[in-house]
């Protein structure tokens, strides 16, 4: 009980930190504070949080273009992330990567990725390394429903299954491959059906229920650590925003949009209700979590804004290891 309370509160904190970071990033981007792309994770916070709650620092993740949430859930530091969004020399990648390429190899974060579906072979390669070295570490590949149509998805699931690699494939099915609805881009409702083709377990779960995600991830990760091979977990969710900031999402049915953003469906509101209902926290506790997250994000923004730009000579460094 105490453990469950602690776990749920911890996951709530992570979700709030992601949401606060993302809201701030959206506002800053709209205000022209930094260039490039912002692919917001708003609405999908439960997935990264529920999965990464079961990981150690020595485990690996491969993230996506919509990667801020994964990075925060795996322990990424908000100030270094924000500085990277700003393209500052103090950022995670010294300003060379930006939003779509943030990585922290020491934390097992093998990078966000600007190519849809490209993280899956890389995560599977990391899992290969975990097994080769006889560790019990695992790798997680996050990807979306759109990426599940790519060759990299099929090749990675096939290879991971025949070699029984310690990797968990986490599909964040938000219903949209940019503007293309799931019903338009694949002839199935459950991406997890595709696990059958590779002889591995596949489950579809509510992607806005952080406890359900954590439980499914726990089982899959245990299985992977034991050497029993990969699992495909499909988390059904909805992205609150457009594909990127600037995309109004006109292709969405406004009724669906309204429903998914309602208190009944929103992943964060649902955890809050649960925490109150179980008497794990009161409103003041929740407000404090939010205030703390805002303070942390404000500090990250300040850090980013006060950091220097990279020196122009940095264009030429880090291409090769010498």
């Amino acid at each position: 009980m105490a453990e469950k309370k602690e776990q749920l509160l911890e996951m709530y904190k992570t979700m709030v930190r992601i949401r606060t970071f993302e809201k701030e990033a959206i506002d800053l981007f709209a205000a022209g504070k930094f260039p490039g792309f912002v692919h917001s994770y708003l609405g999908e916070e439960a997935i990264a949080t529920g999965v990464c709650a079961n990981l150690k620092d020595s485990d690996y993740i491969c993230s996506t273009h919509r990667g801020h949430g994964h990075l925060i859930a795996k322990g990424g530091k908000l100030d270094l992330m924000m500085a990277e969004l700003y393209g500052k020399s103090t950022g995670y990648c010294k300003g060379k990567g930006g939003s779509m390429h943030i990585a922290d190899v020491d934390l097992g974060i093998l990078g966000a990725n600007g190519i849809v579906g490209a993280g899956m072979p890389i995560a599977t390669g990391a899992a290969f390394a975990c097994k080769y070295r006889k560790t019990d570490n695992v790798a997680i590949a996050f990807f979306g429903d759109g990426a599940s149509d790519r060759a990299t998805f099929h090749e990675s699931l096939n290879l991971a299954s025949i070699w029984k690699l310690p990797v968990v494939f986490v599909c964040e099915n938000n219903g949209w491959a940019i503007s293309n609805s799931q019903e338009n881009h694949q002839n199935i409702t459950d991406v997890s059906d595709r696990a059958t083709a590779y002889g591995i377990p596949g489950v579809s779960i509510d992607g806005n229920d952080v406890m359900a995600i954590s439980e499914a991830a726990e089982e899959a990760i245990k299985r992977a650590r034991k050497g029993d091979g990969p699992t495909l977990i499909e988390c059904k969710t909805w992205r609150h925003r457009g594909h990127f900031e600037g995309d109004p999402g006109a292709y969405k049915d406004p009724k669906d949009q309204e429903e998914w953003l309602s208190d009944a469906k929103d992943a964060l509101v649902r955890v809050e209700k649960k925490l109150i209902e179980l008497k794990y926290a009161n409103k003041a506790d929740l407000d404090k979590v939010k205030a703390d997250a805002q303070t942390e994000v404000d500090a990250a923004v300040k850090f980013a804004e006060q950091s220097p730009d990279p020196d122009p000579s940095e264009v030429l460094t880090d291409v090769y290891t010498v």
Binding site: L110, G125, A126, Y132, E155, L159
Partner: peptide
């Protein structure tokens, strides 16, 4: 020996080498 999966062959090597192999 790998299946006929060139994306994977090269992609997995990016991951395994980044992890020290």
């Amino acid at each position: 020996d790998t299946p006929i999966s060139e994306n994977f062959i090269v992609g997995h090597a990016v991951g395994s080498s980044a992890c020290g192999l």
